[in-house]
Design a protein around this nucleic acid. Sequence first.
RNA 1: GCCGCCGUAGCUCAGUGGUAGAGCAGCGGACUUUUAAUCCGUUGUGCGUUGGUUCGAAUCCAACCGGCGGCACCA
Length: 480
Amino acid sequence: MSEEETSELLAVRRRKLESLREAGIEPFPHAFAGVTPIAEAKAPHEGLADGEETDVRVRVAGRLHARRGQGKMAFLDLDDRTGRIQLQARRDVLGDEAFERLLTMDLGDLIGADGTIFKTRRGELSVLLSGWTLLAKSLRPPPEKHHGLTDTETRFRHRELDLMSNPETREVFVTRAKIVSAIRRFLDDEGFIEVETPVLQPIYGGALARPFTTHFNALEKTMYLRIATELYLKRLIVGGLERVYELGKDFRNEGLSPKHNPEFTMLEWYEAYADWEVVAERAERLVRAVGEAVGSEKFAQPWKRETLAGSVHSRTGIDVLANRSLESLQGAMREAGMEVPDEPNWAALVDYLVSKHVEPTLIEPTMLHDYPVELSPFAKRHREHDGLVERFEAFADGMEFANAFSELNDPDDQRARFEEQVRHAAAGDESAPPFDTDYIFSLEHGMPPTGGIGIGIDRLTMLLTGQRTIREVVLFPALK
RNA sequence: GCCGCCGUAGCUCAGUGGUAGAGCAGCGGACUUUUAAUCCGUUGUGCGUUGGUUCGAAUCCAACCGGCGGCACCA
């Protein structure tokens, strides 16, 4: 036995478990049929006058949260997913044995309760117990009842304790579920079909990121966890599915931060015959609908739009398009009295300027569009401006949450972009994706003009629930 | 990976060099309208780990482990 198992707190609960069994009471029964959610049990009776009783019978179940009194009458608070209700236990109603046995129940035990609804003199809607059942014995004490659980490490490593003691945590994850189902409803209604593409891939692509690597024993082959669903989804567009979406986990072998978890949930959709502006319009409508579904005002207004170059110019006075080489741009930054970081090329320096000087200022939902081709290996060239692609990224609260473009469907251009990325990889860029011959093969059969987007669901959930770190919207976030 | 802050009982927290505390929870008792119930009594194999300094370390120092924030990487 470990030291922990000998501790008095746990031993007391163990002894109670044994005494229940000795009394012929099953501490872990199989089911408890006919339970009404607590909020539903309460709702019809909120109008009762103080002290008013009913003969309405209810059956509720949940976790014992608190207990008051223990003479001839006791009050107990019972929690379920929908709320909390007070139980009134009376010796004269339950009888000596059931009453006394109930008082030996521990906080944290799961209890089923039968009784009638009434409102106490103090105005608390309650259940006058006519009977009760232990549904599962709890062998460890729950977190403290009124401060809840605040220790972040315990909250994330043992999310079940966070969920049982902090209702606001439950709300975040219920909202997250509503967000996901609202997304599916919206896209299904607009003629998209949901698909599943491989998580385990022989070659990774569709984004600039380092992958997780694993090994397929039967084939003696290195495999990768996907960093994006993009390339497989566009192969489905080539195949004629025309409107597809996938909601699923991507994996990127990068650092942890308040905005980054190594596995995260991404929505991507692709639609034939559309360009980035069609996608932008649909994305705005989708996010507005999702916001309405969860009662958030965050995306009620139309999103602002700025060109990427314009956004840098307005914040820093620097014209990145008039300084189209690394040396020239570095010079312009020095002239402006700015620190010049050590970046390998012009595109990386532009990316730096955006992330340092523009992104933090984008609080209201904003699209930046017209990106440099060097930053966008899968986006179609801009119909008017050389060196740019038709792409936008969407931001809010200083954080990117979506990335979309007119999809590159010229197989020869795509081949050249892959070759450029392969050169970057050879020069030591670990996030440059490898050449994907199957993808080129697919494009050579002809992909219609297509618009596509990726939306980070964790970040969207952060925005819609007001959470400041991704760990608060992921049930079991990555920890050391 | 780097820098800073943090780690005390099941939980929430006091305690900054003199030998470990409170509240809740627990245990025993009183109480038929409580709701952070109250009252009386009572328990606690706990200072993240390992070293070091000191007559003496939760407290000072070092390394390590873990958490948080920032940087780097990235979405």
